[in-house]
Write a protein that binds this DNA or RNA. Sequence first.
DNA 1: TTAGGGTTAG
Length: 518
Amino acid sequence: MVSGNVAELLCLLRHCNTLRSVTQVHTHIFKTGLDSDAFITGNLILHCATLISDALHHAFSLLLHSPNPDAFMYNTVIRGFSDSDHPHNSFTTFIDMRRNSNNLQPDSFSFAFSLKAAANIRSYNTGIQLHSQAILYGLHNHLYVGTTLVSMYAECGWICHARKVFEEMFEPNVVAWNAMITACMRCYDVKGAETLYKQMQVRDIHSSNIMLSGYMKSGEVHLAMKLFSEMPLKDDVSWSTMITGFSHNECFNEAFDFFLQSHKLGSKPNEVSLTGILSVCTQSGEFQFSKILHCYLEKSGFVSRSSITNALMDTYFKSGNINMGRLVFEKMPGKKNLVSWTTMVTGIAMQGYGKEAMELFHQMVDSGVKPDGIAFISILYACSHAGLIEHGCKYFSMMKNEYGIEPSYEHYGCMVDLYGRSGELKKAYEFIMKMPIEANDVIWRTLLGACGIHGDVELGEEVRRRLLEVDPNDSGDCVLLSNMYASVGKWKDVAGVRQMMDSQGLMKTPGWSVSEVS
DNA sequence: TTAGGGTTAG
């Protein structure tokens, strides 16, 4: 009778796709007294942690309130956290498992999931500690643990450790070999990956897809095309890898060609190939094609996927169609995620609507979405392009003090641009001198451009000296330099720059012409 | 009894 109830409950659970429906089943479980059954609780936790979005906290709560949690429950929560926005919680759960429970030992699942969390946050220190623990428990040679160790070390940039683990593996299978090829490609060791690929006794379609993606990421477009043509079997991942690879390497015609070919050959477009081809439309300016794609996306239902909507918004904003970009954003089903908000803020900011971008940024925060470093780049960009210096400074300090985000070169660059565009050149210079990291060429060039716009030759020459200290071979700023001299009518100096460029053979640089100003 | 590692985008 009891086993019949269990089967019935599991069947009910399988049909739940919201936290609300799971809670209803849970209430029923409680009423029937089956909540003390570890198998039932384990399945409840599994369902919440892996199958329903936004239910991980509930899975964690079930674990905490379980009178006798077992390894399966702990492992499932560790797994859920490893793929969440808070992978660190995997480690605290791993520690809790050993401290709070009666003689519970971590097993291969505990290590594989925790190592995945370490890989996701690229934490070498945590990864190596887990590796030591795995050795203590005699699980470092386990096939799944070994494979995850290879991936973890590669994600953290320690290819030598990844290789050592792989070489010490006892009879690695095709997945372990694929993990090692991926590790080589992650570290841009294309030759190493090729050697392994050739050595493989058994390959599957993943092996070839990893090679395709690695070639494309390393700019080896022709090698990817050659391998693709030799592949006896291609799946939708092979096609989308090629399309996105062409997109990254700016081979727009090839991307369109492959997209249409895959369609003709009956391979269905997926989320990745569609975001890829939308990006190609944006980069190449093929906005008519993106409109056709929009119709298809509406009809096929792909428009409900946030990655697709974000790419579509980006295309509309970059084509200057603000109203359509805004409409796509407003029609997005469900809760808008961080990428959607950031795409919207950037899109509006690009068109110069600084105040609206700020309103959107606050709406995002009010809706419970926490901004990341990229979101702050977009709002700083909005402020600099709308001349909102005070607001820009406020966001910059908010980022550091309220959100604990360390500014990157991009953030510093935005601040220099913010001061520079508004003509506060001295402040921009002082800001650079006070930066805790040494300014790079991009930051100096940003200020040099501003000196040109506002005609401050004295500061511009100082900036040029600083720029040459960072990059003695730099020549990309000649246009900025000659523009600066031209803006104050120093034609002799313009001619000087022209002569310098002549002597360095730079006169063929596209996009500039001294004759236009002289 | 319930689970896992390797590929494509953002």
